[in-house]
Write a protein that binds this DNA or RNA. Structure first.
Lengths: 357, 357
DNA sequence: TGAGGTGTTTTGAACGTTCATAACTCGGTC
DNA sequence: GACCGAGTTATGAACGTTCAAAACACCTCA
């Protein structure tokens, strides 16, 4: 009771030295078992916790990670961000780290913010999201020897991402869209389109590539497959418009680069009055957002929780290494997977199908 | 350039004492103008930043705020959380504070986490979200004299929230639903229903109250208005089902407690084939989520950014006060406002209305 | 008996900052 | 010319921790 215990007060009460208590916490093997037990008991009884500032001042480590929170739905959007933040916080916590947020208006602002956080010395490492073509941040961080991990491959046409000098974790979007395409192929569709974003966006091109790969495997590339692929702005209404045109041209099913686009496609499909696949509309979204779940839309799901776990693990690994000599960068591509759903017939604006069998 | 500057190294280079440099930063009025200028120049030139751990150790202040990140869509859901987090981070940053996240599985876990963060002494104040009936957290925090502010009123039937012993900021949901109801009344609707959650959820009851108030003002309470109000689970499909029944019973328009419910109601309305209000479906959602924006659904918007600003301001105010004597709690209820939208006709599954101008 | 370990504990110093207080400077007053 | 007070600057100590190295205890072996 009374004042908050410190190393010194605890040691005094126990009749041992500061350092012994410190060792009991940080290097138990150096303490005689009997003493260790005595100290540990005192620690739990007094509820002693090391004061982070004292520790940080001496060790030059804060056990704090930081990440920039992008303005609403930039890079990773909405619900994905929620899941990512939560998973990241939890993973960090498990490893004894905390997650601090900061904002910035652009990449340059992010660099400035990182610089600030580093010079006040309360952040050990950073998580970068929203990697893009010509990203200026990674070079700066590498130059300044700042520990960091990217969520997202370095999208460069010049360099193989697996040759990058920094660590990253990313989701293989192509595997998911390929799986989605395969599913539609299995249901007999032959004119499967891809509804995505304009070319050049790394992430979008990756998702399109999976669709193309699945078609190629099925030997369906030659007959003008490219005509069934369009790139538009990521919104429900432009998705609806574009999907309508595709359906008019003979497309019978659509794999989409986002749930927003899929939502539009769903509306267009309903309007076009095309047949369904035994209750399931031939439209597949991406990101498995709550909207998709709510509407019963099949969607490709990113293993965000695993991404977070890997990001933190890698960061912690970097921090554990000697600060002088660098650590081997590590690159991890995790597969995305298709979540198959069957929508509530009410929401499709059709009569429920008569239960066969 | 060499090592990172510290107060001492900077003072040595300038030929003044540590304390003078420290004063130049923290109490400029105590330093002779000429000296002040010299010191300031040296600070900017050297890029000196005070080391937070050193400062924290001495002042017992970390300039760190913390908030529990609830598991996905609990309390404040999806996109609202994004906006809130972003606004909170930005507001905190403006005031020279940082935001740290942590997770917990329940209220008890949150209390334990807070206790931990406090005893390692690196958090100055907390933001509480997801307040609910019989919340055990506020009492604990008050008992332990921890500075905190709630986003959300204390939902107690016993006590007037404005008498609460702790500060809170909340959004007056009723004002938004009342506005929504008034809009529908203005368009000639007389049988306006409310599609919400089962009674007892504070937030939900508040939103329903606004609807009821607007009806009362219009003198429409007596004719069995209660029959047009239902409470169901917060999902699109149950919203669709419930809305369908209401429309069958003669309801012509719906104010909803969430965008999910509104989404369902929209589907039901479409299916029922009821008339629209010159292109606008008579359904209004709540929270103005990206889905609502995407579909062109009118929705009540919470001024989350303002909430965050007030939360941080209050917290900072508490922290500025002498730690011994408490600060007057402050209670702030901000109005929500209706965002009126007109959906893309494509998405309604109808022909666009002939432009009548 | 003493030299050399090995295992355990203690001591001095340092990390960078601010508080409390002392010291100095300078103009004005008696 | 000594004294005072206000303005400005400097000094000692402290915040709580860990590093580096010293000290101590005990055991083995020549």
């Amino acid at each position: 009771m009374g004042e908050k215990p410190t190393l010194v007060s605890l040691a005094r009460d126990l009749g041992v030295s500061r350092q012994t208590v410190s060792n009991a916490i940080n290097a138990p093997h150096r303490v005689k078992p009997a003493t260790l037990e005595r100290v540990r008991k005192a620690i739990t009884e007094s509820g002693y916790r090391p004061h982070v500032a004292g520790r940080q001042l001496r060790t030059r480590r804060s056990r704090n990670l930081a990440m920039r929170l992008h303005p609403a739905s930039d890079g990773i959007n909405g619900s994905i961000l929620d899941r990512f933040l939560h998973a990241l916080t939890e993973s960090a916590q498990r490893q004894g780290y905390r997650l601090t947020l900061f904002t910035a208006h652009d990449d340059e602002g992010e660099i400035a913010a990182v610089d600030e956080l580093l010079s006040t010395a309360d952040i050990d490492g950073f998580v970068l999201t929203g990697t893009h073509h010509g990203d200026s941040r990674t070079a700066w961080l590498l130059d300044h020897q700042v520990p960091f991990v990217c969520f997202g491959r370095p999208w460069s046409t010049q360099v193989d991402p697996f040759e990058a000098r920094h660590s990253w974790v990313d989701v293989d979007g192509a595997s998911g869209t390929a799986e989605a395409t395969a599913l539609l192929l299995g249901r007999g569709h032959r004119r499967i389109g891809f509804l995505g974003w304009p070319a050049g966006s790394g992430v979008g091109d990756d998702r399109r590539a999976g669709w193309l790969r699945a078609l190629a495997r099925a030997g369906l590339i030659d007959e003008g497959a490219a005509a069934h692929s369009v790139g538009v702005e990521d919104s429900v209404s432009s998705g609806a418009r574009a999907a309508g045109e595709l359906f008019d041209q003979g497309t019978t099913a659509l794999v989409c680069a986002s749930d927003s686009l899929a939502l539009g496609a769903l509306a267009a499909w309903r309007e076009a009055g095309l047949p369904d696949d035994e209750g399931e509309p031939p439209v597949i979204g991406f990101d498995d957002t709550p909207v998709a779940a709510a509407l019963g839309l099949s969607s490709v799901r990113q293993p965000i929780e695993e991404v977070a776990e890997h990001v933190v693990a890698n960061l912690v690994h970097q921090l554990a290494a000697a600060p002088s000599r660098g650590v081997q960068p590590h690159h991890q591509l995790l597969p995305s997977t298709l979540v198959v759903r069957r929508p509530d017939p009410h929401l499709l604006g059709r009569e429920p199908p008569t239960p066969s069998q």
